[in-house]
Nucleic acid binder design. Structure first.
Length: 548
RNA sequence: UGGCCGAUGGUGUAAUGGUAGCACAACAGGUUCUGGCCCUGUUAGUCAAGGUUCGAGUCCUUGUCGGCCAGCCA
């Protein structure tokens, strides 16, 4: 019954639930774009609170403006929420309530609280006044009720051109809250609705529609972001005048994440300018982008609970997201070995043509994950960064004369580096110690370093895509995206060498490539014939920091 | 120059008039067949000034700074 760490909303809900109120919430996206990590925060709050208090949460498409909405977005939204692991009570559509909303509007007109206004949008803007000056009443403000009723009916009937009239609530043109200066309830819009088709040519505005949607569904807590704080008096006004079920609106701060952008418009710009490959580009903060990047639902939910719920406009460091990601993946990801920048190693004293199978642990954090066999042979690949001719102090890897452990295999010693005429490293000639099979020396001697490897002949060639933060700037607020996008946010590496089992991975499968990071088989392009892995997030690396 | 809302280490948050705590980040160390994980430690905070109170991060006043609002978007 009692939820997790109580934030200010949970405190309110807990108090009212204790007094007998049923907890019914809703998540109300407009189906005109894809969900992103900021929506995930709202989703976790809306669905999470309902769940914690034994209530329910509806998924409602707030489809009151047909110009940019579509069924594709509806499907995308449903898929993303389901993927996050939440179950909605009812799937609702604001468009299903249009008739009822119209009736309520007629009722309000009848009460003398709404009127048909013939001012142009420009004239409405001018007459609304400014932040410091009161507005002027519309010349149509005192139109008789009968005439309003008649005109409103004809608006619906399609007798007037788009934009020629609106239905406005009659509230207070001098209110310091501009939302109360006779807000528009209906506009004439001859645009086919993706569900209602051409049944309507008038559409309700957000302020008029939203409270009604909540009321009709019997919502008790209408949770939304801080932007709607100024709209709450209007939300309350409509419901009070109509004397219908009145949910409580509570606002919280939306999520801002460092080194990325979150608004639909900015995300759209990135897609349209081809600065990313699409809405599901692994660098995008969209749910589909994060999914393709290799995020788990658990990591996202953990992150959302870690950031909390407040009314403070904050900027969350993306390092916190990375932390939650690693925390989750460390426990669940199968380990594998892959070489993203290969250099060949020849073990001179290992018999030519022979192969042996060695046992490797699948996940040291989860014994139940078991072990697997990996092939070892005379020719291997290791990471080129794991070798240096003249290493600096505290370099624990390979260099001439030095011995390291090949993970789950043998100790090897570097005899010499072979270079071509231009000085490029061609291969490393090494020897191995047969007495160290499995990774431990019979004589008990230790090595400082353990490196990962794959057998040259048995490994698969694959593509690995390295991802990094989309923007270099913490808070990219200029529109100059071409210059702001991190040029190294995506690096495509070809000719990587993968452990033999990796090409068979199912698209979306997540691995930890030992010593490198977490990677997933790309959802769109990975295949056994042409393996493609995306780097979700690198492992923490204290060595790299020390070198600076 | 109107109204509403907010302000706690570098970042995100907790403390509901009674010892300012947690997490991330950073730094130092321990452990280790992943320079991962894990463990230990260090640095670092109540926007300001008044007031109420035995006692204020918390309540009051004023100020400062920040967010939102002048769509027939949501």
């Amino acid at each position: 019954m009692v939820g997790q760490a109580g934030d200010f909303i949970r405190d309110i809900v807990a108090a009212e639930a204790a007094a007998g109120k049923v907890v019914r919430t809703r998540f109300p996206p407009e189906p005109n774009g894809y969900l992103h990590i900021g929506h995930a925060k709202a989703i976790c709050i809306d669905f999470g609170i309902a769940e914690e208090f034994g209530g329910s949460c509806n998924l409602r498409m707030d489809d009151t403006n047909p110009s940019k909405e579509s069924m594709d977005y509806v499907e995308g939204i449903k898929r993303d929420i389901a993927w996050l692991g939440f179950k909605w009570d009812k799937l609702c559509f604001a468009s299903d309530y249009f008739e009822q909303m119209y009736d309520y509007a007629v009722k309000l007109v009848g009460m003398g609280l709404a009127y048909v206004c013939e001012l142009s949008s420009e004239d409405v803007r001018v007459s609304r006044g400014t932040l410091t000056e009161a507005g002027r009443g519309s010349p149509f403000r005192d139109r008789p009720v009968q005439e309003n009723l008649e005109l409103f009916k004809r608006m619906r009937g399609g007798e007037f051109p788009d934009g020629s009239m609106t239905l406005r609530a009659k509230i207070d043109m001098a209110s310091p809250n501009l939302n109360l200066r006779d807000p528009v309830m209906y506009r004439i819009l001859r645009v086919g609705h993706y569900r209602a088709k051409d049944k309507w040519c008038i559409y309700p505005s957000y302020d008029w529609a939203h409270g009604l949607e909540d009321s009709i569904e019997g919502i008790t807590f209408s949770l939304c972001d801080l932007d709607f704080e100024n709209h709450r008096p209007l939300y309350d006004w409509f419901l009070d005048k109509l004397e219908i079920h009145h949910p409580r609106q509570i606002e919280f701060a939306r999520l801002n994440l460092s080194h990325t952008v979150m608004s639909k418009r900015k995300l759209m710009t990135l897609v349209e300018k081809r600065l990313v490959s699409g809405w599901d580009d692994p660098r995008m903060p969209t749910i589909c982008g994060l999914r393709r990047r290799g995020f788990s639902p658990g990591a996202i939910r953990r992150f959302c609970s870690t950031i909390g719920v407040t009314k403070f406009n904050s900027l969350t460091d993306c390092a916190l997201l990375d932390h939650c990601l690693r925390e989750d993946l460390n426990k669940t990801a199968t380990r594998a070995m892959a070489i993203i920048d290969p250099v060949k190693v020849v073990i001179e004293n290992y018999p030519e043509g022979s192969t042996e199978m060695l046992e490797a642990v699948n996940n040291p954090e989860d014994p139940a994950a078991g072990t697997r066999k990996i092939p070892f042979s005379r020719e291997l690949y290791i990471e080129s960064g794991d070798f240096m001719d003249s290493p600096p102090p505290k370099f624990f890897r390979l260099s001439p004369g030095r011995e390291v452990r090949l993970r789950y295999a043998y100790f090897i010693k570097c005899l010499r580096a072979v270079r071509d005429d231009s000085g490029n490293l061609v291969e490393l000639r090494c020897s191995y110690d047969p007495e160290t099979r499995g990774g431990n020396a019979a004589d008990g001697r230790k090595v400082k370093g353990t490196i990962h490897w794959v057998s040259a002949a048995h490994s698969a060639v694959g593509e690995v895509r390295l991802y990094d933060r989309l923007f270099l700037e913490e808070k990219p607020d200029s529109e100059d995206y071409e210059r702001l996008v991190n040029p190294e946010s995506e690096k495509i590496l070809l000719g990587c060498r993968l452990e033999p089992s990796l090409p068979q991975a199912k698209p979306g499968a997540v691995f930890q490539f030992e010593r490198l990071g977490y990677f997933c088989a790309d959802l769109k392009t990975h295949s056994p014939e042409k393996p493609v892995f995306n780097r979700t997030v690198p492992l923490r690396e204290s060595w790299a920091k020390n070198r600076k």
